[in-house]
């Protein structure tokens, strides 16, 4: 029982990170029908910007008492801002010109951008994994039979708060409504006076911001940042988005948590070397038997 609950908590923590990244894939796909393969590397960039801020603050002896909380907020804010701008910049420079090109062109461009980001991050921070500062003290709390670390609670709470905020933004705000309109029909949206270019840019900003949050919590949770992290995490998050139904926001969250739990429990029951097999088998099974995912509507047009 003890171990089951511990694995459950670990799966939820992992799932929260995947869900945040998956949301970025799904938002962009929803509006452009583009699988933004560079998204995983935006996540890596978020980890490193948060890491750089924390290391600088620690060197300035700032991370004590109230300074610690301020420092964490600052690192998170910088990561969010940097990733949002990076993602919007990628859209502006690499994808906007290709909006009317055949679908394969932006897809391959996305892979190219991904390689570029990976190598630029390697140039910046080197190829060895960089330890992420242990900013959140991690005493174990006992809640009944469940043992969880404070770090775990912070990671999951931060991720869920972000997702709730996103949900309300998309459903309630004017910009959210514009995003949904552009996703539904770009031409009709521009006919009723929505600035399509601006709406798409904002979608990329938001997707990037989510990757920034994910980068921060991922760094805290795994304890290191590495220039290739985004590749593996990105593929798993992409699987989560497909599982939930790509283009569907609630689906990406559900898919993220399911993939996190699957990774955790497959490690427990079958063994660590099989967790990737379990996760990517799900990708294949979903694509074969239910390409629209758990919550997605079937849209035969979309690729």
């Amino acid at each position: 029982m003890h171990e089951f609950l511990a694995q459950l908590a670990n799966g939820v923590e992992l799932g929260a990170i995947y869900a945040l990244i998956a949301l970025g894939y799904t938002l962009v796909y929803g509006i452009l029908e583009l699988i933004n393969f560079a998204h995983g590397d935006v996540y890596t960039f978020g980890s490193f910007t948060a890491l750089v801020v924390l290391v600088a603050l620690r060197a300035a002896h700032f991370l004590h008492g109230a300074g610690l909380i301020l420092g964490i907020v600052a690192a998170l804010a910088v990561a969010i801002l940097a990733c949002a701008l990076l993602n919007a910049g990628i859209e502006r420079l690499a994808y906007r010109r290709l909006r009317k090109a055949p679908r394969l062109a932006p897809l391959i461009t996305a892979i190219g951008v991904s390689f570029m980001l990976e190598n630029l991050i390697e140039l910046w921070q080197g190829a060895a994994p960089v330890p992420f500062p242990n900013v959140i003290p991690n005493p174990e709390l006992e809640i009944g039979a469940l043992q969880v670390g404070v770090q775990q609670i912070v990671v999951v709470a931060l991720a869920i708060a972000t997702m709730v905020a996103l949900h309300y933004f998309v459903k309630r705000s004017r910009l959210g409504k514009a995003m949904r309109a552009v996703a539904q029909d770009r031409d009709a949206a521009s006919l009723v006076g929505i600035d399509v270019d601006r709406t798409i840019a904002i979608t990329f900003l938001i997707a990037g911001a989510l990757a920034g949050v994910a980068g921060f919590v991922g760094g805290v949770s795994f304890g290191s940042a590495w220039f290739l992290n985004g590749f593996g995490a990105g593929l798993r998050a992409f699987t989560a988005a497909v599982l939930g139904g790509i283009g569907n926001i609630a689906g990406a969250m559900l898919g993220g948590f399911l993939i996190g739990l699957l990774e955790s429990f497959s490690t427990w029951f079958i063994g660590g070397q099989w967790s990737n097999v379990a996760v990517f088998s799900v990708l294949i099974l979903v694509l074969v038997f239910r390409p629209s995912g758990l919550l997605g509507e079937s849209l035969p047009e979309k690729v």
Partner: peptide, 20 residues
């Protein structure tokens, strides 16, 4: 005995199992 997959970032699931 366990083997890990290349590029794994999260070892906590494995470690929780070992802890038992």
């Amino acid at each position: 005995r366990d083997h890990i997959a290349p590029d794994t970032q999260d070892f906590k699931a494995l470690l929780l199992k070992i802890k038992g």
